Computed example of a mutant assay.
Amino acid sequence: MTGVLFNTVMGIDFDALKGKAEEALREHGDKIEDGLDKAGDFAKSKFSGHDEQIDSGIEKAKSFLDKFDDKPDAPPAQ
């Protein structure tokens, strides 16, 4: 398979789709994080006793989002 054929299946350009998704994550990461916090709070209200698991899932999702922002993950050492 050629690269073009592999990345375009049934008329879908997956490289372009991936680029648009990454752009959206960079542009709206803060809104997505706010939504994750709200979803976590809702889940905690419905599944009491599972706060640690919910918090862990939210932190993993936020960590994934951090890969797409332009901010450094840690402040530079002085």
Rank of each mutant, 00 (worst) to 15 (best):
K44W: 01
A16K: 13
F47I: 04
L5P: 13
D41H: 01
K46Q: 11
T2M: 14
D51S: 12
A16V: 15
M10R: 08
D13W: 00
S56N: 15
H28M: 02
Q53W: 00
E27C: 03
G40Y: 00
N7Q: 10
L25F: 03
T8C: 11
Q53R: 09
G3D: 15
A24D: 08
H50M: 09
I58A: 05
D55T: 08
G40L: 00
K18C: 13
F42K: 14
I54H: 06
D15E: 08
H28G: 03
E23C: 05
L17E: 09
G11T: 11
R26E: 08
E27D: 05
L5K: 12
L5S: 15
A43F: 02
E22W: 03
D41W: 00
K20G: 14
G29L: 03
G57R: 02
I32H: 00
D13L: 00
R26V: 09
V9F: 06
N7A: 11
F47R: 00
G19I: 03
A21R: 01
G35E: 04
D34C: 03
G29Q: 09
H28R: 09
A39T: 10
R26K: 12
A43T: 09
I58F: 01
K18V: 11
F6R: 13
D15G: 02
D51H: 01
D41L: 01
D37C: 09
S56P: 07
V9Y: 04
K44Q: 06
G49Y: 03
V9L: 08
D13P: 01
G29W: 08
V4H: 14
V9C: 04
D37E: 15
I12E: 11
D13H: 05
G29H: 13
V4A: 14
I58R: 10
L25H: 00
F14L: 11
E22S: 13
K38V: 07
V4P: 06
H28C: 05
A39Q: 02
G3H: 10
A43D: 10
F14Y: 07
A21N: 02
A24Y: 14
H28K: 11
N7K: 06
A43P: 05
H50Y: 06
D13F: 01
I54L: 05
G19H: 05
D55R: 01
D15Q: 03
D41N: 01
E52L: 06
F14R: 05
H50F: 11
V4C: 14
E22T: 12
E22N: 11
K20F: 07
D30M: 14
R26M: 10
A24C: 07
G11V: 12
G19F: 02
E52K: 11
R26L: 12
F6L: 08
G49E: 06
K20M: 11
K46E: 14
L36F: 05
G3V: 14
D34H: 07
F6N: 09
D37V: 15
H50D: 07
D30N: 13
H50T: 06
G19P: 03
H50A: 08
K20W: 07
Q53D: 09
K31G: 15
I54M: 01
K38D: 09
G11A: 13
I58W: 00
F6V: 09
I32M: 02
V4R: 14
N7P: 05
V9T: 02
I58G: 02
K18Y: 11
I54E: 04
